[in-house]
Design a protein around this nucleic acid. Sequence first.
DNA 1: ATGTAACCATACCGGTCGGTATAGTGTCAA
DNA 2: TTGACACTATACCGACCGGTATGGTTACAT
Lengths: 195, 195
Amino acid sequence: MGENTKMTPAASKILETASHLFYWKGIHSIGVETIANEAGVTKKTLYDRFGSKDQLIVAYLKDRDSQWKNHLSNYSDHVPDEEPLQKILSIFDALENWLTTNNQRGCAFVNAFAELAEESHPGREVIIEEKKWLKQLFATYLKQLGLEHVDDIAERLLILHEGITVTYSMSLSKGIAAAKETANEIINANININN
Amino acid sequence: MGENTKMTPAASKILETASHLFYWKGIHSIGVETIANEAGVTKKTLYDRFGSKDQLIVAYLKDRDSQWKNHLSNYSDHVPDEEPLQKILSIFDALENWLTTNNQRGCAFVNAFAELAEESHPGREVIIEEKKWLKQLFATYLKQLGLEHVDDIAERLLILHEGITVTYSMSLSKGIAAAKETANEIINANININN
DNA sequence: ATGTAACCATACCGGTCGGTATAGTGTCAA
DNA sequence: TTGACACTATACCGACCGGTATGGTTACAT
């Protein structure tokens, strides 16, 4: 779902443009007319492809989701399955690179969640599912490490992940080292309990 | 600065109303007309008191800041100065109560930061100063504990603080226990190093 | 050759945006 | 008692909002 491959050329361009503008200028601050103009496309085409601004927002969020997961794969895939701790730490490495290159405005999902105040907005589900997915990924690796209380520890790792993203985007953290090291310490502390 | 005491009655009502609407509906989603109407005041009065929407936004952020600091005092002040660790943990207790009562939409500052994308918006400075203040507060208590690397540890505590606020607002954390316990463990780990 | 899908251009809709203008009322201190 | 201040009420401004209507062009598959 949402793969660029099965989109028309105009739709791809619209989504690409919307993605950039929504992220850097904010969802509510950007009008559909601006998106259409910047994409070199008529408003008619935008509505023919996406139906409404809300649906375009959902497409934007799904696109960010798949981009982030793809980025993450580049860091995790070459870590052998026998090293789940390194798998977890690679997530923080992926985040560091993600934040420092072209994503200085912080987490698109957290920002969008702030803007989409209406409980019923379909974008909110996409956001929450993304975070749940990440938490579950942490839990899976923790289980492979043979830890107990994996849900609790996964929650802590997610907290670190979200926290560092916020502080980094406000220039209150220079890199993500503080979060990565804390993650490492939390995990090691719980490994030692089992020995 | 910004104390309600030296405001006119209408100004207080406007700020109170704006504060509520900005927080729950989002800054860009709410128009000045709505605020004026809900406050039972004319738009003229709103502009006579606050000058512009942007200045009202700044007033809103400063008001949230003083409210949060006031709330924090209620939790920290009755912890004796001789117990800096408890002072730090009381910040997390204050946050738990803050988030669970009337502040379910997460951190007003993080949300506003997401909405105020323009680098030059005066509200951004208020937000960053607030976070720096909290980080410094952590550092002060850590220094009283006789720790080294207080800036590094203060950064970690801030990360936990921001992280739990985000995950709680997305219903991915049930309470703030995970953050508070991690904070406690980080501090204890660094106390032991000195012994 | 015909239809359909993807696009273009332009013009329009009602509604709302932030902000201003004009005119008037009540209160209270000097 | 006068003038400054805090307010009310109403009407207006140009700009922009999300979304629609109409009509025409190209390319491509059947």
